[in-house]
Design a protein around this nucleic acid. Structure first.
Lengths: 198, 198
DNA sequence: TGAATGACAGATATTGAAATCTGTCAGCAA
DNA sequence: TTGCTGACAGATTTCAATATCTGTCATTCA
């Protein structure tokens, strides 16, 4: 009846994330994870071929939680301009929230992201695709004028990196941050705008 | 006659930078600098009150070399739009060159910049002022339309951070980098443009 | 038979004693 | 007097011995 004694990859990931939170990236070991699960570390190696792959899976799970709400916005309907702004602001808010709520865990994630850079790259590519999807809608609606949707999506991702890349989380204490975001978004949206009909 | 035996702050900085280059940030000591100068380390402390202040001075000297060519462009004349683009491309080129020419030294500088963050902040503020100067010219020329020059200058700095911040130098190997820069600059310049007269 | 164990070899991390460094200052030399 | 030295105390770093971890696998258990 007690299903929680079954050792599943999902359960290992849960506990592994918790161990990472408590010990930090440098000190968290596979043995620690096994101890927390009350099994031998050999059992963990039955489900994950290496420590690296376990950590990559944790990073993937983490990034999926960032991705889900953004995908919902990207897939939505309505004016692309407002949708793009909402999508970008939501991304900033998610990253900002993660830093402020649990700075220690974020530092751990930051280091983990550096290790699992392949997983992070896939995540980024997914986000650029979401921007491209919104841009594509905007072009259809006649609101945006861009040379190439894919390239412009990448440019938007690059242009906003200051407000969503973890490496810049140090200076998220600037009181004028909201104003800086407003100014940047205004500049970018104006740059995308299709010329008015006369 | 041999003036080089005189111990000046400038000479110490030269040698300190060389020591930093050869030993790396973690291993370079004040004693190493003194040894390279063939004086006791007490003599170095006559000119700099601490190891930290010596390192800050090295960082400042380093950043001044980045600043000088950009200031020249900012102070120039001609159409602000072309000048802004040239200024930004020059900044990217300077950073890119520093990374590619001497990656090891750049890694050292990256860590040093993290230590001497106050010096770096002043450097950044100076760069934003230079952008603001160009924008201000552009508004006078009727080429740009912005709500607030200072704020827009900051927005431009933020928007291009991907291509000038040292933290993003890892992925400067992307073959499509030039295209990404082109796309970003086109987007930003279009966002600044004043509407055409009819 | 399939899931879990625990012992093992080689790699990695911890630890504490010894070496080196930072910053100060009394004194020397010009 | 000015610029430098070298000895010093306390802080930091190095290094080598010791402990722990990673990944494998023969064995046990149900």
């Amino acid at each position: 009846m007690n299903e929680t004694v079954v050792l599943t990859p999902e359960r290992i990931l849960e506990v592994a994330e918790d161990v990472l939170r408590r010990f930090g990236l440098a000190k968290a070991t596979v043995v620690d994870v096994a101890r927390a699960l009350d099994v031998s570390h050999g059992s963990v190696y039955r489900h994950f071929p290496s420590k690296v792959s376990l950590r990559e899976a944790v990073a993937k799970r983490w990034l999926e939680r960032v991705n889900a709400p953004l995908a919902k916005i990207a897939e939505g309907s309505g004016p692309a301009s407002a949708r793009l702004e909402r999508w970008l602001r939501t991304m900033f808010a998610i990253k900002h929230k993660k830093v402020c709520d649990d700075p220690e865990m974020f530092a751990t994630y930051l280091a983990l992201a550096h290790e699992a850079c392949k997983v992070v790259k896939a995540h980024k590519d997914g986000l650029v695709d979401q921007i491209a999807h919104i841009l594509s809608d905007g072009v259809k609606q006649g609101a945006f004028q861009v040379a190439d949707v894919k390239t412009s999506a990448r440019a938007l991702f690059d242009a906003t990196i200051r407000f969503h890349h973890p490496a810049h989380s140090e200076d998220w204490s600037d009181p004028a941050l909201a104003a800086r975001i407003d100014a940047l978004l205004a500049l970018l949206l104006r740059g995308l705008e299709a010329p008015r009909k006369r």
